[in-house]
């Protein structure tokens, strides 16, 4: 617990928008835009994009019963100095009575066969941790966390390239 309190926050974004399905794209795009300066890999960014989309869709579809123009979805995104991110997605919707059951892969309330019930399973796979707190009648909060790979690997590759270039130049000089 102490470790997380010591974490240095480098950036933070508070977002709130109407609980309508058009905003699913907006939500995932905004969160990913905040991550851009971290220079994360394409795959890592796609992981976050998908997880945010799942959580926001859950809020709109389940929390607010398919969308509600006068209700709001809240997202708090925090970037830390250790290249990690915490995304808290909150709604004041109907809530989930049995969170554990809802988080089971393939669990769905849908009867039409048009929904997969894979939302939470995808969030768990793509993020390092997923925490859900919910009170029926009051709403649901989903907390997603992920630590990105250090830039070192990328820098090393560049270093090698530069070193090779220098070595070639030196070899040429020696030749002349």
């Amino acid at each position: 617990m102490k470790a997380s309190q010591k974490k240095i926050v480098v950036n933070q974004m508070k977002t709130e928008f109407r609980a309508i399905s058009e905003n699913e794209r907006l939500a995932r795009t905004l969160v990913c835009a905040l991550l851009a300066p971290l220079d994360v890999t394409v795959d890592e960014l796609a992981d976050v994009r998908c997880a945010v989309s799942e959580a926001v869709t859950n809020s709109i579809v389940h929390g607010y019963g398919g969308g509600c123009a006068d209700r709001t979805v809240y997202i708090l995104t925090t970037l830390y100095a250790d290249r990690s991110v915490k995304i808290v997605i909150r709604d004041r919707g109907v809530g989930i009575a049995d969170v554990d059951a809802a988080m089971e892969p393939l669990f769905t309330t849908d009867k039409s066969g048009e929904r997969s019930g894979m939302g939470f399973a995808i969030m768990k796979t793509f993020m390092d941790s997923v925490r859900v707190r919910s009170t029926p009648g009051l709403g649901t909060t989903v907390e997603l966390k992920k630590t990105f790979a250090p830039l070192a690997a990328q820098e090393t590759a560049e270093d090698v390239q530069t070193q090779t270039l220098f070595a070639e130049e030196r070899a040429q000089e020696a030749f002349v």
């Binding site: 995932r28 796609a46 994009r49 998908c50 989309s53 799942e54 869709t57 849908d110 048009e114 929904r115 997969s116 019930g117 894979m118 939302g119 995808i122």
Partner: peptide
């Protein structure tokens, strides 16, 4: 360009 679990349902 992007797909989430809604695509699976689709």
């Amino acid at each position: 360009t992007f797909m989430d679990s809604a695509g699976l349902g689709f």
